[in-house]
Design a protein around this nucleic acid. Structure first.
Length: 280
DNA sequence: CTACCATCCTGGTTGC
DNA sequence: TGCAACCAGGATGGTA
């Protein structure tokens, strides 16, 4: 479920509670999520101090004082929340519990187990399989119109599919791709290679704007998503098209009874929501 | 290269 | 109310 804004929100929450703390206890309750947990993970984490919490694309990066980085991906249904009361029983799907030196438990819960946990040497992060070939951060300085236009050049695939490809730009998912395409007036069906020049520029601005607005709202809570402290995001109330099939798009004056309002189509197996009149 | 499909897994919602 | 089918924010690997 979590896309970049939700992961950023969780990472910020972790940063305020776990950064600077020493890990005193780790409980791992199963052998794997989408992939196996790292070998001897509890042993390798215990006694380490957390020096920094960051994010790359949809990955949470927890830097340790031995130079390793604990990587956490929340998949579709992952939550990473803290609990002050260690006497509370673990819930179903609580897979990893990291106890800090202030007695607070940081619990990774993931019912569908599409998430993953890895531990890599900090210096080799960019070369790691998960990050090699990954596209630019959409909120970073390196992401601009010409850069995106370059990465889309020659791609004979719908722009919707291209933006979901983490090698083109890293961190977008189904929701924010739909929203950004709407705000830039680009049809999700348009061939990626035709998004050049001003159109690419508009798309970059729309991506940045929608991601920043979503982060400011604490992300979007559709079903599972929660902040590190259990709070919910509220950006879902600001969706223009996502999950709004048949409804009017913002500012639309046309008759929904005639136009059908926002359309839903399926592209590469995923729902796409858009306004066929405003997006070309 | 690209498009499409299935897969991993659980749980909430929908429809009969 | 019960139950089955369907759907979901991601990523990957296979096939045609």
């Amino acid at each position: 479920m979590p896309e970049l804004p939700e992961v950023e929100t969780v990472a910020r929450g972790l940063s305020s509670t776990l950064e600077g703390r020493t890990i005193v206890k780790v409980r791992q309750n199963r052998a794997d999520l989408r992939v196996p947990f790292p070998e001897n993970l509890p042993k390798r984490l215990t006694g380490r101090r957390v020096t920094h919490i960051g994010r790359r694309a949809k990955y949470i990066l927890i830097t340790l004082d031995d130079g390793n980085i604990l990587i956490v991906h929340l998949g579709m249904s992952g939550r990473f929340m803290f609990r002050h009361d260690p006497s509370l029983p673990l819930l179903a799907h609580d897979h990893l519990v990291i106890t800090a030196d202030d007695g607070v438990d940081h619990v990774l819960n993931d019912p569908r187990r599409f998430g993953l946990v890895a531990l890599v040497e900090g210096a080799k992060l960019d070369q790691h399989k998960l990050f090699a070939g990954m596209g630019p951060e959409p909120l970073g300085n390196a992401f601009d119109g010409p850069t995106l236009a370059d990465r889309l050049a020659g791609k004979n695939t719908p722009i919707k599919a291209a933006l979901l490809d983490q090698r083109v730009v890293a961190g977008l998912g189904n929701i924010y791709v739909c929203e950004a395409l709407f705000h830039s007036g680009i049809s999700p069906l348009r061939l990626a290679r035709t998004v050049q020049g001003q159109r690419a520029e508009r798309l970059v601005q729309a991506i940045r704007q929608v991601l920043n607005a979503a982060i400011a709202a604490g992300g979007s809570t559709l079903r599972d998503f929660m902040h590190h402290d259990g709070e919910l995001g509220y950006f879902q109330h600001s969706f223009s098209v996502y999950d709004r099939e048949g409804k009017p798009c913002p500012g639309c004056t046309c008759d929904v009874a005639k136009t059908g309002g926002i359309a839903r189509i399926v592209q590469s197996g995923r729902s796409t929501f858009y306004c066929p009149r405003k997006q070309r």
